[in-house]
Design a protein around this nucleic acid. Structure first.
Lengths: 210, 210
DNA sequence: TAGATTGTTAATCGATTAACAATC
DNA sequence: TAGATTGTTAATCGATTAACAATC
């Protein structure tokens, strides 16, 4: 499906396309042109067509794109239909918020289990997610392989936990700790959500010139 | 301080520089060259020097950069010393996690208040942050202007809440709702944290070609 | 059919990298 | 002083935009 190496800029726009197409779909819109979709997203029609052309031909001359079909294609491209699974390490405030509120299914994931170290957490259930002791991580993953490990542990624990996940054969790490993880195994992909980077960027944008 | 229009790519690297310099500082490193810092971050020395040159001259030939001084300069550039304040709208799971765990001070912010609609939340205190009823938002902000409004409300409420914040003269919105906010007032900057975009990007990276 | 809109090739623009004189 | 490393100018590379033949 991927014709050649796709640039990161393109990849990071795919989830946005998917989000807008989902909205359009729910609003009952059946077809849309590249110029209409682009305009609503602040992109040129050219860019949108160029982006999609990395993966195939999804439109029809004179008509545009079928919203539902294109949405499905992008879901496929993003790997949302590959039955990915996840485990989360750290059931602190942020971990619990993700477990309780984040819709993993909407991104094609199933959250299998959480791991923590606190006796009062271990053995409990958050939503439908069981919490196990972090000592049992290796045993658990050997039985139930996961695609992604989510890191919501304290900063100091991040490196060690990442290593253990990699050793367990995880494919990707979704990193919420405020560190740059240096994962040796280059087959393992790391995607970080850095709250402070985001807030500081906003800070720059609203600040007075010094 | 800013010589000309600085590209977004450069701006988004600044918080990373700041983070690495903070780590170096805490590790007791006093000076660093552009090539050493670049290498540790996966950037070329050229890029790093080019980036910094947008804002001034912070290094010394034959020596490199003083870690602590450069860290301070970047903090200034990011507006971290401008006494920014924030209020948070929505004290649900994610809102509470941010209130309890996110170190606003480390990014130069003070979180003044939270707003929610639930009777059992209103009047309480989370950490040191008081929770008020959302109906009192306008009154409160008139008394205590805030630089940034943080949106951790449900998706459906996002648009209306954004409008109210803008009407109150907020400068920026830190958006955690899974929507693209269409803020009319172009002076108001929106910075979004889209969890699902991030996870879907990771999904793409770990997925098999279709 | 005529109008609309695609996918793609070529042109432009911007960002990254390389090179080097200046100098600590 | 000699070696190291900066800030900046020029060269390269990549991403975005424009243009257009193909065709629904």
């Amino acid at each position: 499906m991927r014709k050649h190496k796709v640039s990161e800029a393109v990849i990071r726009r795919l989830p946005r396309y998917y989000r807008h197409l989902t909205d359009l779909n729910q609003a009952g819109v059946v077809r849309i042109s590249s110029s209409a979709l682009g305009a609503s997203m602040g992109l040129t029609a050219s860019q949108l067509r160029q982006d999609l052309s990395c993966f195939g031909e999804f439109g029809q001359q004179g008509y545009g794109y079928n919203v539902d079909k294109l949405r499905g294609e992008i879901a496929d491209i993003l790997g949302m239909n590959q039955g990915h699974t996840a485990v989360i390490l750290g059931a602190g405030n942020l971990g619990r918020a993700l477990i309780k509120s984040f819709k993993f299914e909407n991104s094609g994931f199933r959250l299998n289990a959480a791991f923590d170290i606190l006796p009062e957490m271990v053995g409990s259930t958050i939503g439908a997610t069981p919490v196990y002791h972090i000592d049992t991580l290796e045993d658990y993953l050997a039985q139930h392989p996961a695609s992604v490990g989510i890191l919501t542990v304290p900063r100091q624990a991040a490196g060690a936990m990442a290593e253990r996940l990699v050793a367990c054969g995880i494919k990707g790490i979704w990193n919420f700790t405020n560190t740059e993880l240096n994962v040796q195994n280059s087959a393992v992909r790391v995607e970080s959500v850095h709250f402070s980077d985001s807030l500081q960027t906003l800070s720059y944008m609203i600040s007075e010139d010094v």
